[in-house]
């Protein structure tokens, strides 16, 4: 299983959000680090097929034979948690998950079972029948994580997933994605270094739309946080 990004570029009038990014991504946890405006979200949206790359290709090899999978097969393999996601105010947590399961094409019986499992995993079983508008930020984020993994995705894209989580939830979440990363390509973006250094098998660092580091945490000879801050020094001082 492989996700191949080849010279992926996204250009907006007057700015290049993502500039010719190439990478072969395999199962494991890939931490996408970068400051705000580095192009992480744009890259993730392109991987999810929400926005079209200006140039370059993104291809998914599910097994050795299939390089160009169908759109439906690709989407079927995808789980996504956007940075900011909305919800229908009249939905309860359970109804939201059932709705997302329907959109993901999961049959009702499986969806019900999966929803109950995931509500338990993200500790929302007691609040499952409460309306989402009454949820705290952390609860909404956990619900978002649950919907992302409903279909047992092969490619899991998480944009700033730990935002709004308390330290305890953060640790639980790290364990969850480490587990998911055994069988799936998990890409999660953050600007919190400690989130990445604990779970990521591979770190991709972005700055101004380009990759400035791609490798393992151990490849960096200094402390990851110092390396990260040094890489973004110019930006931070602006």
């Amino acid at each position: 299983m492989e996700l191949i990004l080849n010279q992926v570029t996204k250009q907006y009038p007057g700015t290049v959000a993502v500039d010719r990014i190439s990478a072969d991504l395999r199962p494991g946890v890939i931490g996408l680090l970068g400051s705000n405006g580095a192009g992480k979200t744009t890259l993730m949206r392109m991987i999810c097929g929400i926005i079209k790359p200006t140039s370059g290709t993104i291809r998914f090899r599910y097994d050795n034979d299939t390089l160009n999978v169908s759109e439906e097969m690709y989407r079927d393999a995808l789980g996504y948690l956007p940075q900011d996601f909305g919800y229908y105010p009249d939905f309860t947590g359970r109804k939201f998950l059932m709705y997302m399961a329907a959109l993901k094409g999961i049959d009702k019986r499986t969806a019900k079972r999966k929803c109950e499992e995931l509500l338990k995993t993200v500790s929302l079983e007691k609040a499952a029948n409460k309306k989402i508008k009454s949820y705290s930020g952390g609860m909404k984020q956990r619900l978002g994580i649950a919907q992302a993994v409903l279909n047992d995705p092969k490619i899991l894209i998480l944009d700033e997933p730990t935002a709004g989580l308390d330290p305890q939830e953060r640790v639980r979440f790290r364990n969850l994605i480490a587990e998911l990363g055994k069988d799936a390509i998990v890409i999660f973006s953050t600007h919190i270094v400690s989130d990445v250094e604990h779970v990521a098998d591979r770190i991709i660092m972005m700055k101004d739309g380009v990759v400035i580091f791609d490798g393992k945490g151990t490849d960096i000879r200094e402390d990851l946080e110092s390396f990260y801050l040094r890489s973004f020094e110019g930006k931070e001082n602006e």
Binding site: C48, G86, Y88
Partner: peptide, 22 residues
């Protein structure tokens, strides 16, 4: 226009069925 009004478009766009289909 429910999806757009409540910010669900991004989640729906990344689901199995395309936004066009929905």
């Amino acid at each position: 226009s429910r999806s757009e009004r409540f910010g669900m478009e991004e989640l729906e766009a990344a689901s199995r069925f395309s936004l066009r289909f929905i």
